[in-house]
Structure formats: C-alpha cells, structure tokens
C-alpha cells in the first residue's frame, strides 16, 4: 500500500487548525449515525411510552389521549391477571435460565476437549440457535401435538401420561412447553460464551496442577470454575433479564393460554397492545416491568460490590 508521504504533514497554520478540528470531531462522526438511530428509534419511543402510562391511549379511539393520572396503576393494582403473569415470569425465567446454563456448561466442557469430528459436532449442536424463534415455537408446538408429533406418544409409552395428550392444553403442564423450547434454543448461547471463556484458560495451569497431583475434579473446582466465574455471572445476569422479556415463544405456542397459565408479563404487555389495542394500559404494565428489572439489576450490582469488598 502506498500513501502520499506529504499528506499528513501540515503545510500552514490554517491547515493544522483544520486538522485539529477534524481530529477532535472524528470519533463523533464515527458514532453519530448509530447514536441518532438509537435516540430516535429507541429512546424517544421509550419516553413516549412512559407518558402513555399516564394517559388513556386507545388505538381505535381517536378521542383518546387524555391525561388519566394514576388510573392505570390503580387498575393494575387489582388486576389478578397481572399478578399471575408476574408469578409465571419468575417460573419461566428461573427454569429457563437454570436449565440453559447447566446444559450449556456441560456442552462447553464436552466441546473443550479435542476429538475427531469436533468441528462438525460443534456446528450441529449450535444449530438450534440459528433457528428463528417463531419457527422454534411452532416446531415444538407441533412436536407436542398428539396428531402430528411424537412426544405425547413417547410420554404415554413411558407411562408418564395416561393418554397421549397435548401438554400445551393442560393448565398444569403448559408452561413446560415454552420452557423446553426455550432451553433447546438457548443452550448454544451459553455453550458458545462459556466455551470461549474455557479456551482462554492457560493450558499450562492444568499441567502444573496435574503434576502437583490434583485430580480431574480438583482441577475443575480450583482452576476452571474460578476462571469461568466472571463470564458465568455476567451471562446469567444478562440472560435473566433477556429471557424475562422474551415473549416470542409463548405468543407463538400458547398465546398465554390455557386459562392464562403461561402468560408472562412481557406477553401480557404485547397482548394488551396488539389485541386489546389499549396502548395506555400496556405502557403502564411495561413501566412496572421496567422498574422491577431495574431493581433486579441494582440488586445484582450491589451484591457484586459486597462480594468484591469482602474478597
């Protein structure tokens, strides 16, 4: 590559001032397009949405839009569906994150060891992550459907079910449908992140430990886990927030039913906005969800601070 050797050197004071201004402005020019988009398409609607929480906004009613104060929050306070959605969110998030993490960690440990065909095995086990979520939802809904899918028949054959029925229409079990679909789809994310962290651990540490007589389990608890801990903490924290907001699978598989047993807060917001077209109430619920998530994140940050101070 050949560059004009004189281009970088100022020829006059004027030129050098221009240069300095350009250099000062350069990072802002690089970031401006991204910043403008984020502010107009994410921040502005966020603020607008917060204002809807205190207004009566119905899509089909042109006369709506008036200020209603805390009315939405009073309705919300007595809304049993909301409390059920809150409980369901905890259950959905807790089970999904835990199962994804455990199976993702095991997969990462399995893939960290060299073996013939590792590249192809890795490509295949990571594949579910590329499957669009709406298709993941539909695919699992079909697998659970006794007309077309094998799962109910297998569960029946194993004696786990009295008859080959669809668990998605059983209020007691329905939540397991989206959770299983979510675990299938989300294992690769944890596995990819943890595998990357595993491969960054210096190999000679293991050799030194082995020479000192540490067994496989000891090496895992004294080397692998401490090295992985920061990655695990940040991934689990981010995933928890993300999954508690992740409504796609539920909307596709059950639409929150049967009898609202799978309705989580995020899908409840979407249902209020999309089906009831009640933008005001949807935004009020969203505001409460946002506050809860912020509280959760603060708690984690504080917890981390306490743990770090002690260490």
């Amino acid at each position: 590559m050949v560059f004009d050797a004189t281009a970088g050197f100022p020829e006059s004071r004027r030129r050098s001032l221009v240069d300095r201004v350009t250099r000062q402005a350069e990072p802002y020019l690089y970031t401006a397009p991204a910043l403008i988009l984020i502010v107009t398409i994410m921040l502005a609607p966020l603020v607008l949405g917060l204002s809807y929480a205190f207004r009566d906004v119905h899509l089909l009613n042109p006369f709506s839009g008036g200020y209603v104060g805390l009315d939405h929050f009073r309705t919300l306070y007595d809304d049993d569906n909301f409390y059920r959605a809150l409980r369901n969110t905890l259950w959905w998030t807790g089970a999904s994150v835990l199962l994804q993490f455990v199976f993702g960690l095991i997969l990462a440990l399995l893939l960290d060891r060299p073996f013939a065909g590792r590249a192809i095995a890795q490509a295949l086990v990571f594949l579910p992550w590329a499957v669009p979520t709406f298709l993941t939802g539909l695919n699992w809904a079909w697998l659970f459907n006794p007309v077309i899918g094998p799962l109910p028949h297998w569960l029946y054959a194993l004696g786990l079910m009295n008859e080959p029925a669809n668990i998605l229409s059983n209020p007691q079990l329905a939540m397991w449908g989206p959770i299983i679909a979510n675990v299938w789809w989300g294992i690769p994310f944890f596995a990819i992140t943890l595998l990357a962290a595993l491969q960054a651990i210096p190999r000679d540490l293991y050799e030194a430990a082995a020479i000192d007589g540490a067994g496989a389990f000891r090496r895992f608890t004294s080397i692998t886990l401490p090295f992985l801990a920061p990655t695990i903490a940040i991934t689990v924290l981010l995933r928890t927030v993300w999954i508690s907001n992740f409504a796609d699978l539920i909307i596709v598989m059950t639409s929150g039913g049967p009898a609202d047993r799978t309705q989580i807060v995020a899908s409840y917001i979407f249902t209020q906005a999309f089906r009831a077209l009640d933008f005001g109430y949807a935004s009020a619920i969203a505001l409460v969800l946002l506050v809860l998530l912020l509280a959760y994140s603060m708690l984690i940050v504080m917890l981390r601070q306490v743990l770090m101070d002690r260490a």
Partner: peptide, 24 residues
C-alpha cells in the same frame, strides 16, 4: 455516556416500545 446508553438499550424490554413505535 454513549456506552451506558447502548448498554441500557440491551437491558430494557423492547416489548415496551411496540405501542409507541407504532404511534410514531
């Protein structure tokens, strides 16, 4: 602040924006 803003967008529920974005 730019980094903080970008991190914030990763944390809040995008489903909140469904209604206002439609209106905008």
């Amino acid at each position: 602040w730019l980094v903080a803003l970008m991190l914030l967008t990763q944390m809040f529920p995008l489903v909140m924006l469904v209604a206002p974005i439609f209106k905008m």
